[in-house]
Design a binder for these strands. Structure first.
Lengths: 205, 205
DNA sequence: GTTTTTATCGTATGGCTATATTAATACCGT
DNA sequence: ACGGTATTAATATAGCCATACGATAAAAAC
């Protein structure tokens, strides 16, 4: 057999180049030729690793979404191993959704660019809706656990509280790029979560 | 002189056709030829009313933004003439930002499509940022007035409260298209505004 | 060492698009 | 009625882009 190449890694590299390109020239500015130039390879090589331009863009989007999810999961795992209260876990998790550093800001911009295409692309819209629903579900579960644990009052509507916190976070993420102070925003988000989780856990989980 | 044509009205008609086109095929699916076909006119006529495709899209976006703003302003004016408390005025105004009916949902989708292009278009990004800042400023003013009037506690940070309510509203608007219950959402928004404006106005303004 | 499979590259091409241009039309003031 | 101009239609053009294709290199298998 010929030269051995890690296909997945190469695809990831190319997708990363496409992300830089989107960041710089927008989703519409992406052409296969420019993607190849950004990645420092030939057009033919891009074609070798992606069957079509659509496949290339889909892989790029998937990579961005996965990285955003991974950031949140990492924050959750870290908080859980530190035996922090659910309130703190949720606060850290939601904080990870905000475009506070360069990397997550780029991810957010790119995911926003794709979001603008959901209008005419049912597949993309479906993926987006599913992702939102999953996140909202996890958040609702956290609130529910908070009720069982004693951090959240018993009369709280877990689903409504989750929807509210999530919408607030996404709204902040949207507005952060447009003249909102990061520190104040994070502080407000912290207070909002604290308002939903006012109690203390009765037992160590 | 020749045929008299209301330029502004004709431009608005064409822009409305472009909006339908964006709604159906996405912002990328817009071509001058399709725009002409959707509007039921020739390509040459589109060229006559818009110097370039960019100008056509900009006019469309501007029309959408203006209509969204007008809806809010109308709600505010109506509420004010009814001598409603500021709380009710703000509630109605924010409610108008949500894509609850077909028209505002279309406007929201289209503005989202344009938002996805702010990545690479500084002019568009600037316009968007300004619009957000203006809205946030108006909202902060409403909260400030509420403090003077007695509806809002004196220790409320008007700017922070405005930023929070606005982000929440925009977040809800974003999530409404993806599996959020409209009625519950409106109710939650109403409660949130009520929480910021818990008092009663001391005097009739 | 030959063969076969994979990787990479450069170029060709067919289609689509924005826009320029040219010609035709219709209406108004006089 | 009629010239002139705003308006409309139709066509031409030049550029760009995704994708197809062919050629070359390289490395494993035997």
């Amino acid at each position: 057999m010929p030269k051995l190449v890690d296909h997945a890694a190469r695809r990831a590299e190319i997708a990363a180049a496409v992300q830089r390109l989107i960041d710089h020239e927008g989703l519409d500015g992406v052409t296969v030729a420019k993607a190849a130039a950004t990645a420092g390879i030939s057009v033919g090589q891009v074609q070798h690793y992606f069957a079509s331009k659509d496949a290339l863009l889909e892989a790029t989007y998937r990579q961005v979404v996965e990285r955003m999810g991974a950031r949140v999961q990492a924050a959750v795992r870290e908080s859980v191993t530190e035996r922090l209260p659910i309130r703190a876990v949720v606060t850290r998790a939601l904080r990870e959704y905000l475009p506070l550093d360069a990397a997550s800001a780029s991810d957010h911009r790119v995911s926003l660019a794709f979001l603008g295409r959901t209008t005419a692309n049912p597949d993309l819209a479906g993926l987006h809706t599913e992702t939102l629903a999953a996140t909202r579900g996890q958040l609702a579960l956290a609130v529910h656990n908070g009720k069982e644990c004693g951090e959240v009052p018993g009369d709280t509507d877990a689903k409504a509280a989750a929807a509210r916190l999530f919408a607030l976070t996404d709204g902040f993420a949207l507005h952060l790029g447009a003249g909102l102070d990061p520190e104040e925003t994070v502080e407000t988000l912290r207070e909002e979560v604290a308002a939903v989780f006012p109690g203390r856990c009765r037992q160590w989980k």
